[in-house]
Amino acid sequence: MVIEVENVSFGYSDKKILHGLDCTFDGGEFYAVIGPNGSGKSTLIRLLNRLLIPDSGSIQLNGRSVKDFPRRFLAQHIGYVPQSGGSSDNATVFDTILLGRKPHIKWAPGKSDFQKTESIIHDFSLDHLALRLTGELSGGELQRVHIARALVQEPDVLILDEPTSSLDLSHQIDVMKMLKKVSTKGITVIVAIHDLNLALRYADQFLLLKEGRIIAMGDERVISEQNLQALYDVEVQKVDVEGQSYILPLLD
C-alpha cells in the first residue's frame, strides 16, 4: 500500500503545526520520522489513518483519498500504536489483543479471531500473561501487547508513535527488532522516534521534520551531520563502527 501526502497543512486555532507537506511512503519499507519535540511527527502520522483531518491538501492510499474510505476499511489496512495509554488497565491481555480483530468483526469475535489472537500471543511470548490485567504489566510487556494488537489487525501499514520512548535499552532494542521483522514480511512500518541510533540501525527510510516542514527524506544518507545540525541546532558527528553508523552529539 502506497501512502501519498500531498501539500498537507494542519494546525489548531492558534498554532499551525504542519506547512504544506509532500511525501510518499512506499509499501513494505521501514520509515523513521525524526525531528525535535513539537516538529509535527505525531501529527503527521496521525493524519495518515485519519485520526486527524488535514486543514488542506490530501492524503491518498493507493491513489484514493483517505476521506473516501469508511473508518472500518482504514482499520483493516492501517494499525496504530499510540505513544501512551492505548488500553484499559482493567482489561486482560487477551481481551486487549483480541480488540485488534475489531475491524474484521461485525458483532462478536468468532473462532478464527480467537485463533489468530491465541497465535499472536504465542508468537509474542505472552502466553503466561494472557489473563493478566494490562494495568499490572511492565512498560515493555505493555508495548508488546499494543504491537500485537495492531498486528492481529492484519494491516498493510503499521504506524507507531514513539514506541521506544518509555522503555529501557534492552526493551527498546526488542521492539525495534520486532518492527524490523514485521517490515521484512511486507508490512510498511512508520515510526515517530527520537533515538537516532535505533532509527539508523533498524529503519530503511528517514523523514526529517522541523517546525512542520520536511528538511529531507530518503535512505540513510539523509542522516548527515549537516541535516542533523539543521534539525536539532546541535553539533553531531556521524561515526562508523564495524560498518554501522552512529550519531554522537558533540557536547561542550
Binding site: 492501517i78 495509554g85 492505548g86 475489531k102
Partner: peptide, 16 residues
C-alpha cells in the same frame, strides 16, 4: 470494549 482503550485507539480500530 474498544472505547475503554481510549478514543484514539477505538478510532484506529474502526469504531465511529
Amino acid at each position: 470494549n474498544a472505547l475503554n482503550a481510549g478514543d484514539e485507539v477505538a478510532s484506529s480500530l474502526g469504531v465511529n
